[in-house]
Design a protein around this nucleic acid. Sequence first.
DNA 1: GGCTGTGAACCGTTTCACAGCA
DNA 2: TGCTGTGAAACGGTTCACAGCC
Lengths: 236, 236
Amino acid sequence: MDSRGDSDAGVAEAPIPPATVRRLPSYLRALHGLAERGEERTRSAALAELSGVSPAQLRKDLSFLGSFGTRGVGYDVSELAQYITATLGIETEHRVAIFGIGDLGHALANYPGYSRRGFEVVALFDAAPEIIGTEVAGIVVHGRGDVARVLAEERVTLAVIATPASVAQAATDEAVEAGIRGILSFAPVSLQVPEHVDVRTIDVSSELQILAFHLQAGQIPTRVPGATAAGDTDRV
Amino acid sequence: MDSRGDSDAGVAEAPIPPATVRRLPSYLRALHGLAERGEERTRSAALAELSGVSPAQLRKDLSFLGSFGTRGVGYDVSELAQYITATLGIETEHRVAIFGIGDLGHALANYPGYSRRGFEVVALFDAAPEIIGTEVAGIVVHGRGDVARVLAEERVTLAVIATPASVAQAATDEAVEAGIRGILSFAPVSLQVPEHVDVRTIDVSSELQILAFHLQAGQIPTRVPGATAAGDTDRV
DNA sequence: GGCTGTGAACCGTTTCACAGCA
DNA sequence: TGCTGTGAAACGGTTCACAGCC
């Protein structure tokens, strides 16, 4: 019941492995699902199944955050959810800006699930004069000239790039210039950013291409040595 | 100049590592970019930079597909693009169905870049009576009762799930029932599928949560031992 | 000379198997 | 007894450094 010391910088906490961080959102999602169904306690086997990982994987991952379970019993759902929330740094909502208000930008702006997940969309940008000044999802769309001012005023910390590929780098540069350190891009290009900025890219076509690869005859029996099989969302 | 034997099943080809397959789409994207700019030849350093990986990584990855470069010279852009296209199995277009025609489904249906990437959206499904029968992106939206028939008639091989999370499993089951073996899901749930079906999940909120983690003070100096730094889209 | 292709070393991740504890 | 927490083993992926070839 120690080892939980979190944000008191200075102590040499063992770093959480990247692969573990990538899975924390699934665990949190599964825990919220359990909580909604009124479950107060769970076990690594149950939570792992809901998250699509092996029980050993889940326990190992949680061990990097601290020690939360009760041996012989399991985990307290809300306590664990709370701690993962704190670990991810989403106890207070992050304020998000979306660049590029086309079909995709619209869809992202209108997505209703953010607040439950720790985010709030507070700023929209587009270059097209006929869109600037209109309201999308209750937020006024600003032009490129207002980026620095609006990002500062709205205290935005994360940017989503939903522009065409051709202007994605320019939008990224503006966001970085204004101090943004986390960028989620939907543009199918490799964005160049300074070292202190983190970029994650979602490319639908790439995902489809990876699926296409597996459809081919010669590749059907993919890995899966002896494990879970179903629900393995991260094969290849 | 051998080792290229591709789809002649029976020969014990060394399998392509999953991590390599995941990067092939970026390489292909970069090669298309070079081809559009009229470049006929490239080197591993240049192609790697465009793809956001290290030159060694790129060369190692390509070595799993065969031997395409000329030592001392580099790679032929169109030849390499053609071979990666063949490896991914997208020489002929894959026919895609989208389940759930909300904001996201609309955006995905209207995305203009598929055909260049090897895909064609040919079927749309939704449960809402007021949407069934309408046209989106020039395609009539069908109801759930028509899934099996339309998927067969349109020879669909890949399904995209853009429904609310609550019905994502049901849509998945229908697609799998109709013989679909590749599924790209945007629903924030872990989908259960038979072993022969491949699921890839895109969850925007999860990506934002991972970015949020890195914004925290204690975690800024993430990995990056001595390498590329900028453009590294896969740091967690 | 210059670049590819690749064995070997290194490193991070996953799985195993069991010790530790309610 | 039944579960968590975790060292240790096994595995896969990445980087290094150089041999091989044009």
